[in-house]
Computed example of a mutant assay.
Amino acid sequence: MNLIRTKLEKVAHLIFIAPSMVFILMLAIVPLFYAVYLSFRSYSLVMPADMAKFNGLENYIAILGNREFTNSIWWTLLFCFFAVLISVGLGLLVAVLLSDQQESRGIRILKSLLILPMMVAPVVSSTMWKIMFGAVYGPINYLIQLFGGVPVSWTGNTWAARMAIVVIDAWGSIPFCMLIFLGALTTIPNEMYESARVDGANKFVIFWKITLPMIRNFFALVMSIRVMDSLKVFDPIMIMTDGGPHGSTESIGTMMYKTAFRYMDIGQGSAAAVIFFALIAVISVATLLLTRDKEDRNA
Rank of each mutant, 00 (worst) to 15 (best):
M1Q: 12
K7Y: 14
H13R: 11
A18F: 10
A28W: 09
I29Y: 02
P48M: 01
D50P: 10
G56M: 10
E58S: 15
Y60D: 09
I63S: 11
I73G: 02
I73C: 04
L78A: 12
F82K: 10
V84Q: 08
L92H: 01
E103H: 10
S104T: 11
R105Q: 02
R108Y: 03
I109S: 05
I109K: 03
L113E: 00
L114E: 04
P117L: 04
M119A: 15
V123E: 00
K130F: 10
I131L: 10
V136H: 10
P139N: 06
I140P: 08
I144N: 06
L146H: 13
F147G: 10
F147C: 10
G149W: 09
G149M: 14
G149E: 11
P151F: 03
P151T: 04
W154I: 09
N157V: 08
W159E: 14
R162Q: 15
I165F: 02
V166S: 04
V166Q: 06
V167Q: 07
G172P: 04
I174N: 07
I174H: 02
P175T: 07
C177K: 11
C177L: 11
L179Q: 14
L179Y: 13
I180M: 15
G183M: 04
S195C: 12
A196G: 12
G200V: 12
V205R: 14
L212T: 01
L212W: 11
P213D: 05
P213G: 09
I215Q: 01
R216L: 01
V227W: 02
F234G: 02
I237E: 00
I237P: 00
G247W: 03
S251P: 00
G253S: 15
G267D: 12
A272R: 02
V274I: 14
I275F: 00
F277I: 08
S284E: 03
S284Q: 06
L288F: 15
L289V: 15
L289W: 13
L290F: 13
E295G: 07
R297W: 11
R297V: 04
